[in-house]
Amino acid sequence: MKMDPADLRRVNVFKDAPEEDLKLFVEKGIVRSIEEGEFFFFQGDPAAYFYVLIEGRAKLLQTSATGQQVNLRTITEWQMFGALGAVRENATYPATAQALEPSTALAIESSFLKEMMQNRPYLNINLMQLMTSYIMEMQERYRELATERVERRIALTILRLAAQIGKRTEGDGMTVELPLTRQDVAEASGTTMFTVSRVLADWERRGLVAAGRERVVIRNPHGLVQISEGLDQ
């Protein structure tokens, strides 16, 4: 497969690169085509090459010590991946790259990228942009996971307590009332009163509960069950 160096400008990191740099990267690169399900590299391999996906789609997946797999991201055409070897000594790939369809990538030695970075500010800035966008994305995902977990825990706690001490009341439809303070809910669900207040205020706004000083009224039991089961997303 013959590559036009100008195509590399479609890669964010290379968007400001002069023609001669692009030519160098293409000259140094090896074009690798693999079938669906095959791998560009494995987690733990020395990160000797970085890749630019030219065609197809790939996923980056991480495997835990117990064998659980997590898909970190999907790589689409003209995205760079596996570049950490250029900035970290003796780096190994933190994830496996597997093709989701027949895919082609340009593989270039990480050491060459490192060499080029020495006197090309555009490469440094653009790689930092790539890094910070990954960090921001991960922070957002972390926040989502953390808040989702605490919401589910509080919902489950309230439902369990309702099953034990709740009383059915008739408001606007079926409701269940519990004689609980926010502090009780916080202690029972292993979180802080601040978090319970925040979550209850959000649920109140959504019409799921009504929270008084010493009582919680479940106004939409089914909605709360869905949150506790993580089905409301």
């Binding site: 099953a163 059915r168 079926m174 089914h222 069950v225 089961e229």
Partner: peptide, 20 residues
């Protein structure tokens, strides 16, 4: 429905289930 095994099954009537 997700009624079987649900913590709310002692409160929900058939009417509630039908509505939900």
């Amino acid at each position: 429905t997700r009624c079987v095994g649900c913590l709310m099954q002692q409160f929900c009537t058939l009417k509630d289930v039908a509505e939900t």
